[in-house]
Deep mutational scan, measured.
Amino acid sequence: AEIMKKTDFDKVASEYTKIGTISTTGEMSPLDAREDLIKKADEKGADVVVLTSGQTENKIHGTADIYKKK
């Protein structure tokens, strides 16, 4: 799966169907969080990951919607 910015995804959204939401939390780098989200998306058969939230304090927390091409 590839990560797309919401603004970029909005241009092609009609080509995809939302298949779920994924999240990651833990003591990790932003890059590790990104890789974890991609891994989870791949496991669910998603083609595209669109980040919906991200937070960093002591731990990273990120959520994303996942989509499959129609």
Rank of each mutant, 00 (worst) to 15 (best):
A1I: 13
A1Q: 01
A1C: 12
E2R: 15
E2S: 11
E2G: 05
E2A: 13
E2Y: 11
I3P: 02
I3H: 01
I3R: 01
I3L: 08
I3S: 02
I3W: 11
I3V: 09
I3Y: 05
M4F: 05
M4A: 01
M4K: 02
M4W: 08
M4P: 00
M4Q: 00
M4R: 02
M4G: 01
M4N: 01
K5N: 14
K5F: 14
K5H: 11
K5Q: 13
K5D: 15
K5A: 13
K6A: 10
K6E: 09
T7G: 10
T7V: 14
T7S: 14
T7F: 08
T7I: 11
T7Y: 08
D8T: 04
D8H: 05
D8V: 05
D8A: 06
D8N: 03
D8L: 05
D8M: 05
F9L: 03
F9H: 01
F9Y: 02
F9N: 01
F9Q: 00
F9I: 01
D10G: 05
D10N: 07
D10H: 05
D10P: 00
D10A: 08
K11P: 06
K11I: 08
K11T: 04
V12Q: 03
V12W: 04
V12F: 05
V12D: 02
V12E: 03
V12A: 02
V12P: 01
V12H: 04
V12N: 03
A13Y: 07
A13G: 05
A13C: 12
S14F: 10
E15P: 00
E15H: 11
E15Y: 11
E15D: 11
E15A: 08
E15F: 10
Y16Q: 01
Y16W: 02
Y16V: 02
Y16A: 01
Y16C: 03
T17E: 13
T17V: 14
T17A: 06
K18I: 06
K18D: 02
K18Q: 07
K18N: 06
I19K: 01
I19A: 03
I19H: 01
I19E: 01
G20T: 02
G20W: 01
G20F: 03
G20M: 03
G20E: 03
G20P: 00
G20Y: 01
T21E: 08
T21G: 03
T21H: 06
T21Y: 05
T21D: 04
I22G: 00
I22W: 02
I22R: 00
I22A: 02
S23E: 13
S23R: 11
S23M: 12
S23C: 15
T24H: 04
T24G: 04
T24A: 07
T24M: 09
T24W: 13
T25K: 10
T25L: 09
T25P: 07
T25R: 09
G26I: 14
G26K: 12
G26R: 10
E27L: 14
E27D: 11
E27V: 13
E27M: 13
M28S: 07
M28T: 05
M28R: 06
S29V: 05
S29N: 09
S29F: 06
S29A: 09
S29K: 08
P30V: 11
P30E: 14
P30I: 12
P30N: 13
P30Y: 14
L31G: 10
L31N: 13
L31K: 14
L31V: 11
L31I: 12
L31C: 13
L31S: 15
D32Y: 07
D32A: 12
D32T: 07
A33M: 12
A33S: 07
A33K: 06
A33F: 10
A33W: 14
R34V: 13
R34K: 10
R34T: 09
R34E: 10
R34H: 08
R34A: 10
R34G: 05
E35S: 09
E35K: 13
E35P: 02
E35D: 07
E35V: 11
E35G: 05
E35R: 13
D36L: 07
D36R: 06
D36A: 14
D36P: 03
D36V: 08
D36M: 09
L37K: 00
L37W: 04
L37H: 02
L37R: 00
L37G: 00
L37P: 00
L37E: 01
L37D: 00
I38C: 07
K39N: 07
K39V: 05
K39H: 08
K39M: 06
K39G: 05
K39W: 04
K39S: 07
K40W: 07
K40L: 09
K40F: 04
A41E: 01
A41M: 02
A41I: 00
A41L: 01
D42N: 15
D42E: 12
D42W: 13
D42T: 15
D42A: 13
D42H: 14
E43W: 08
E43G: 06
E43I: 07
E43C: 11
K44P: 00
K44W: 13
K44F: 13
K44V: 11
K44L: 15
G45P: 00
G45M: 06
G45Y: 05
G45V: 02
G45K: 06
A46C: 03
A46R: 00
A46F: 00
D47I: 04
D47N: 07
D47R: 03
D47F: 03
V48K: 03
V48L: 09
V48N: 01
V49R: 01
V49A: 04
V49F: 00
V49N: 02
V50I: 08
V50D: 00
V50N: 00
V50C: 03
L51W: 07
L51Y: 06
L51F: 08
T52A: 09
T52M: 10
T52H: 13
S53Y: 10
S53H: 12
S53R: 06
S53K: 08
G54W: 15
G54R: 06
G54Y: 15
Q55V: 12
Q55E: 14
Q55N: 12
Q55P: 11
Q55G: 12
Q55R: 07
T56A: 10
T56C: 14
T56N: 10
T56S: 11
T56Q: 10
E57H: 09
E57V: 09
E57Y: 06
E57A: 13
E57I: 09
N58H: 11
N58D: 14
N58E: 13
N58Q: 10
N58L: 10
N58I: 10
I60S: 11
I60M: 14
I60E: 11
I60Y: 12
I60K: 09
H61P: 09
H61R: 12
H61N: 11
H61K: 12
H61T: 13
G62P: 08
G62R: 15
G62Q: 15
G62K: 12
T63A: 08
T63D: 08
T63K: 09
T63C: 09
A64F: 13
A64W: 06
A64V: 07
A64R: 02
A64N: 03
D65T: 06
D65F: 02
I66S: 00
I66A: 02
I66C: 04
I66G: 02
I66Q: 00
I66R: 02
I66E: 04
I66F: 05
I66L: 10
I66T: 01
Y67T: 04
Y67Q: 03
Y67F: 07
Y67C: 04
Y67V: 04
K68V: 12
K68D: 02
K68L: 08
K68S: 04
K68I: 14
K68P: 03
K69R: 09
K69L: 06
K70T: 09
K70G: 06
K70N: 10
K70R: 09
K70P: 02
K70W: 04
K70I: 12
K70V: 09
K70F: 05
